[in-house]
Nucleic acid binder design. Structure first.
Lengths: 249, 249
DNA sequence: ACAAAAGTGTTATTTCTACACCCATGC
DNA sequence: GCATGGGTGTAGAAATAACACTTTTGT
């Protein structure tokens, strides 16, 4: 059982991160399996009294994934009373996740600040579980296990916001490997949007954003014609995020 | 000097409301003039320990404007360390806004949840100032007075979010009087967007949303042809907010 | 040779933009 | 009768949507 320096944290406030990854044509979310429980939780943490909230969110993300400087965006504060399930703290004590003297801390009402992150699946080596959990795994967004408290709602909302953001920002730089094929990025978009797109129209549109550069390498190995590999032009990509894209999917 | 039931509030958290109104072809924001100070502030308040954050935001809005059931939307949590200006609590004590024993409450670090509201200017009778302020006034968005802490930034962000939301939602039901002319609603859109729109194209587009109904009344009085009055079809309007609009400005 | 995905262009439709003239009203 | 804003339509440009055949590669 870990001790928490709770006196250094802002009381009643937590951060929950919805960490999206993309693998095997599926959107995934990084989840923690609670110790001695069936339930899963979003990686999260508390906010140090003397630190910016955004920086704390980054710290939490880094602790969990080992990644720095990742695209991380605050999207909602969850402040309903009902999100505090009565038995939560009790369960944490019973399952020996926390010691009894931490119980009041976990029993207080919590508001949680939702952040979402886009990370490259393969760069997250062995996700490291925190003291509340004994494993940390990628779960497919459309086949999520049972989640504690309102974490399912938090994920749903993050996904919704992500969809909307596609209209303003390119995604992919953080979700895809360095080099990728046209159909890989198309599948990413289709997955996030939850609908299929026309191959030829997609290519035209994504190229019109002028954020991709074609390498002259190809990916060998499939039992089919070898596709061309693309990379992001990071400068133009960053610029596109700042200025916004003109048109949408 | 008022006493605050601070023990009933969540510590370190506040709500600030950017209340938009529309009058004389300008977007306005409701601001409080701090007692004995030059500076102005957004109407805000604290969150009761046993209440939903959204409900508390509505309560604060109602206290300030007398309006219930208003379009009110959480848009950002402001969590930087720098937003806490050192001298703020001291000033409150010196200007006799708060008693000395409240000083620690106001000296603590505060995070603030930003909400924005759209209200009908004429329905807000005499805005009632709270205990920190001696007047409550509509200020034109593009000519704001000096604001405390980071309230200017909060307003800027709210405006930015509002602009973006125009792409997804109609506005106007809360900002305009019951009946209005085509050019009144056009001016509203132009004001929010900060750009002029073509009269004929605007009419076509707003009518294509199918949320307006033409009354067969006209507004008399101008030294020109009497314009037709429109109303919102509230059912379709609500539906459009939920489903989103197809196209944008 | 065949299965599987990659690459590529054109046409029809829809949406957006730009633009100009006549109409009703009050003074 | 004139100044002021109200009302309306159309044509060109741009964006979007729909659609099919050929190429490469591994087995």
């Amino acid at each position: 059982m870990a001790e928490l320096p709770i006196e250094t944290y802002l009381p009643g406030l937590s951060i929950d991160c919805v960490i999206f990854g993309f693998h095997e044509m599926e959107l995934k979310v990084l989840l923690l399996n609670m110790k001695n429980q069936e339930e899963w939780a979003l990686p999260g943490g508390f906010i140090q009294k003397d630190q910016d909230v955004d920086i704390e969110a980054n710290r939490i993300l880094e602790n969990r994934t080992g990644l720095k400087n990742i695209f991380l965006q605050q999207f909602h504060l969850f402040g309903d009373l009902t999100r505090n399930k009565a038995g939560h703290a009790k369960k944490l004590v019973e399952t020996k996740i926390i010691s009894d003297d931490l119980r009041p801390w976990f029993e207080q009402r919590f508001l949680s600040i939702g952040y979402y992150a886009l990370v490259e699946y393969s760069k997250v080596q062995v996700p490291t579980p925190d003291f509340t959990s004994d494993s940390c795994e990628w779960c497919s967004l459309n086949n999520l296990p049972k989640l504690i408290m309102d974490h399912q709602q938090i994920i749903d909302r993050a996904h919704q916001v992500l969809k909307k953001e596609l209209n303003y920002q390119p995604i992919g730089l953080n979700l895809l490997p360095q080099q990728f094929t046209m159909s890989e990025i198309q599948t990413l978009y289709e997955t996030v949007l939850g609908k299929t797109l026309d191959r030829r129209n997609f290519r035209r549109k994504i190229l019109s954003y002028d954020i991709l550069v074609a390498t002259n390498k190809q990916r060998k190995g499939g039992t089919h014609r070898a596709p061309m590999l693309y990379e992001f032009d990071e400068e133009k990509y960053t610029q596109a995020i700042q200025e916004g894209l003109k048109s949408l999917f």
